[in-house]
């Protein structure tokens, strides 16, 4: 039997470890979702904050009332609070508590619809956006810059203060493309191209990750996103063009095979590769894939299979 003192010391040790952990965990920069670096993430962080507040306004009083009731009406000799075993209905009270959640949900519904509509379009209207085509593969990310005619694998570079239109698809199981500091995620789907708008307001390096389980190498599918001023971005594009090989169809066929790879960059991309990927997994069956018709016209391209 350990002495009382030892037990006490041991408990103190555990408690102080907890305290240290909690303090270190609470440095707010680590809560990346709540510290967004772009307008999309801001809309979402605000919505998280507002919905949390609205809910707490109801939940906290209810919790207090609950603890009060449990304490007040406990079965103890001499408890003088009223006891009415047959009191089982009260229309006014019922109206109140059907009313409270209805009002709460109404408020949140309005907020939800408003922000859903906001997130559909580009975050800033007055700046010319850039497009990046994202393909999730087993188990790596392929990023194509169609306007710059370059490609990267497992890392992204984007200009600051420029809306980025990510077009997402998958040539592997369904995945999800998520850069928490810039904003919410969207699924990359085989045979379908979906759109996600993001924008960075601060230069820096952010964490990006795959967020829908896709098999053995899923854990390795995270990537860095560095955001740089416009001029640096153009310089980087030049550099990629100058120092790398072109990306060929053979390279793609190699990349598609399940594997875990490091980062790489390519000086050019095969035309319509993204459309080819969408199409080969059943892209023509979706009306929302707006490029499909255009792609069918350029079918003569030798894309290999």
């Amino acid at each position: 039997m350990p002495s009382r003192k030892t037990v006490k010391r041991f408990l103190m040790l555990i408690l102080s470890t907890f305290a240290v952990f909690l303090l270190s965990a609470c440095s707010s920069e680590q809560f990346i979702v709540l510290n967004p670096k772009g307008p999309v993430g801001e809309v979402q962080a605000n919505l998280i904050f507002v919905s949390f507040l609205v809910l707490m306004i109801v939940i906290i009083p209810v919790l207090l009332l609950f603890f009060f009731i449990v304490y007040r009406y406990r079965d103890k000799p001499g408890n003088k609070s009223p006891y009415k075993p047959e009191w089982d209905d009260n229309v006014k009270l019922e109206v109140v508590w059907w009313g409270i959640p209805i009002i709460l949900i109404a408020i949140l519904s309005i907020l939800t619809v408003r922000d859903t509509l906001v997130l559909q379009g580009p975050p800033s209207e007055d700046v010319e956006p850039i497009t990046i085509q994202v393909t999730s593969l087993d188990w790596k990310w392929l990023f194509q810059y169609p306007e710059e005619d370059i490609a990267t694998v497992n890392y992204l570079k984007i200009p600051v203060d420029t809306p980025v239109q990510f077009e997402l698809t998958s040539d592997a199981p369904i995945n999800s493309f998520w850069i928490p500091q810039l904003g919410g995620q969207r699924y990359s789907l085989p045979g379908k191209s979906s759109t996600l708008w993001l924008e960075a307001e601060e230069a820096g390096t952010y964490y990006g990750t795959a967020n829908n389980f896709s098999g053995d190498g899923f854990t390795e599918m995270n990537f860095d996103v560095s955001t740089v001023p416009d001029a640096d971005f153009d310089k980087w594009v030049e550099e990629v063009k100058a120092t790398n090989q072109p990306f060929t169809m053979e390279d793609y066929q190699e990349l598609v095979k399940p594997s875990i790879v490091g980062v790489s960059a390519y000086s050019s991309i095969p035309p319509n590769l993204f459309e080819f990927i969408v199409d080969k997994n059943g892209g023509k069956y979706y009306k929302s894939n707006n490029h499909t018709e255009q792609f069918d016209n350029s079918r003569q391209l030798e894309l290999g299979n």
């Binding site: 993430g41 809309v43 979402q44 922000d115 906001v118």
Partner: peptide
């Protein structure tokens, strides 16, 4: 309910 707020769910989903 927080998760049901669709635009915010883009940040919670699968986390």
């Amino acid at each position: 309910v927080m998760l049901a707020v669709a635009p915010a769910d883009f940040q919670y989903h699968n986390s």
